[in-house]
C-alpha cells in the first residue's frame, strides 16, 4: 500500500514532519511557521552534562516541545502512542497505513541506513513520516532528505526501538482533530512571546545570559583543559549551531523567515524590519563559526584567538538582547 503523500524537504526534522503532515491534510503551513509558533528559537547551556565528550549547548528546546506548543496554540489535537515491544508497534503502524493515514515516528539516528556514516550518532529524537509499505519495505519521507527513501522492516524496528537517552520506544503520532480554521494570529503572538521570555530569562544558563556564560568558559578552556580539548569543545559548539537541522546560523535564518511570514499575517511591518535584523544577527553567527573553525582547523592556537571568539559571542548576546526586547514590544 502506498499513501499519496507529497514529500517536502525541510531544514529541521521536527518542524518538517509537522509541516508535511499538515500539508497532507490540506493546511498550507510552512516549516518556519511551525518553528515560530512552537517557539523553536532557544539557547541553553546544560552544566554537569556531557554529550560526545563535550559540554552540552543547544540552540533549540527539548525535542517534541516545538510540535506540542504548535499543536496547542493552533488548536490541533495529536494522538501519540508508545509501545512495549516491536510487534505491537509494528501492528499499530500497519493499521494506520491501512487506514490511509501517514504517521510521524520518533527514531534513533544511529541505525538509519540512508544517512551518511559520519552523521550517524546516538541521537534518539529524529523524526520521519511513514507513508506506505511495499512487501517488507516501508516507504519513508525523512524531511531532511531531498527525496523519499525506504527502510526494511528490520531496520525500521531497530530505529524505533533505539536505546539510550530519550529512547523513542516506538513513539508514533499523527494529528486527529483540526479546527475549521487554524488560529494563526493568536498562535503567532504566543509563539513570539515565549521566545522573548526564554531568550531574556534571568538565568545564567538560558538565552542571552547563557551565551555570556559560554563566552566566559571559552576564555578558560585552553588553559584549563588544554588546546586539544578546547578545540574539541569549540568544534562541538559550532556543530550544534550549524549541523543539519538548523537551516544555518543556529536557527536564526528560519526565524527570520517566520517573522517575514508573520509580518504579512499580522499586518505588522515592524516584524518585517525585525526579520532583517535577525538575518544580520544570523550572519554574525556564521562569522563566529568561521573564526572558531580557524582555531580548531590548526588544532593549536594562541590564547588570544579564544578571547576573540568569546568577544564575538558576547557581542552577539548583546545584540540579541536588544533584538528580543524590541520584538517583545512589537507585538
Amino acid at each position: 500500500m502506498k499513501i499519496d503523500f507529497t514529500h517536502h524537504q525541510s531544514a529541521h526534522c521536527e518542524n518538517g514532519v509537522v509541516s508535511n503532515l499538515l500539508k497532507h491534510k490540506g493546511y498550507q503551513i510552512s516549516e518556519p511557521m511551525v518553528f515560530g509558533i512552537g517557539s523553536g528559537l532557544f539557547f541553553v547551556y546544560i552544566p554537569f552534562l556531557k554529550v560526545n565528550h563535550a559540554p552540552v549547548v543547544s540552540f533549540r528546546p527539548m525535542p517534541g516541545i516545538i510540535f506540542k506548543r504548535f499543536a496547542q496554540r493552533v488548536g490541533i489535537k495529536v494522538k501519540r502512542f508508545k509501545f512495549r515491544n516491536e510487534s505491537s508497534a509494528e501492528k499499530a503502524l500497519e493499521a494506520e497505513l491501512q487506514r490511509n493515514n501517514p504517521v510521524g515516528l520518533q527514531v534513533g539516528v544511529y541505525h538509519l541506513s540512508y544517512f551518511p556514516d559520519e552523521y550517524r550518532f546516538h541521537f534518539n529524537a529524529h523524526n520521519l513520516v511513514v507513508y506506505g509499505k511495499e512487501e517488507d519495505t516501508y516507504l519513508i519521507s525523512d524531511p531532511v532528505m531531498e527525496t523519499t527513501t525506504t527502510l526494511t522492516k528490520k531496520e525500521l524496528n531497530r530505529v524505533r526501538f533505539a536505546k539510550g537517552a530519550m529512547a523513542p520506544k516506538g513513539h508514533m503520532y499523527y494529528p486527529v482533530h483540526f479546527p475549521k480554521e487554524l488560529q494563526l494570529e493568536s498562535a503567532i503572538k504566543k509563539g513570539i512571546k515565549t521566545v522573548c521570555r526564554d531568550m531574556l530569562a534571568p538565568v545564567p544558563y538560558v538565552g542571552v545570559r547563557g551565551m555570556r556564560t559560554i563566552a566566559k568558559l571559552i576564555r578558560k578552556w585552553p588553559e584549563k583543559k588544554g588546546v586539544k580539548v578546547a578545540n574539541h569543545y569549540l568544534g562541538q559548539l559550532v556543530r550544534m549551531q550549524e549541523e543539519i537541522g538548523t537551516g544555518g546560523g543556529g536557527f536564526r535564518f528560519i526565524y527570520g523567515a517566520f517573522l517575514q511570514e508573520a509580518a504579512v499575517i499580522l499586518k505588522n511591518p515592524k516584524l518585517k524590519e525585525l526579520s532583517l535584523e535577525i538575518t544580520e544577527i544570523g550572519d554574525s553567527w556564521r562569522d563566529f563559526a568561521i573564526d572558531a573553525s580557524r582555531i580548531y582547523k590548526n588544532r593549536s592556537s594562541e590564547l588570544d584567538a579564544y578571547n576573540k571568539v568569546a568577544d564575538q559571542l558576547v557581542a552577539l548576546s548583546n545584540r540579541e538582547e536588544v533584538f528580543f526586547k524590541k520584538l517583545k514590544k512589537a507585538i
Binding site: N52, E118, H232, V238, R239, E243, A292, S293
Partner: peptide
C-alpha cells in the same frame, strides 16, 4: 567548510 572541519575533527577524535 567550518562544519566539515568540525565534523572531521570529531571523527578523528
Amino acid at each position: 567548510d567550518p562544519k566539515t572541519i568540525a565534523l572531521n575533527n570529531a571523527i578523528q577524535d
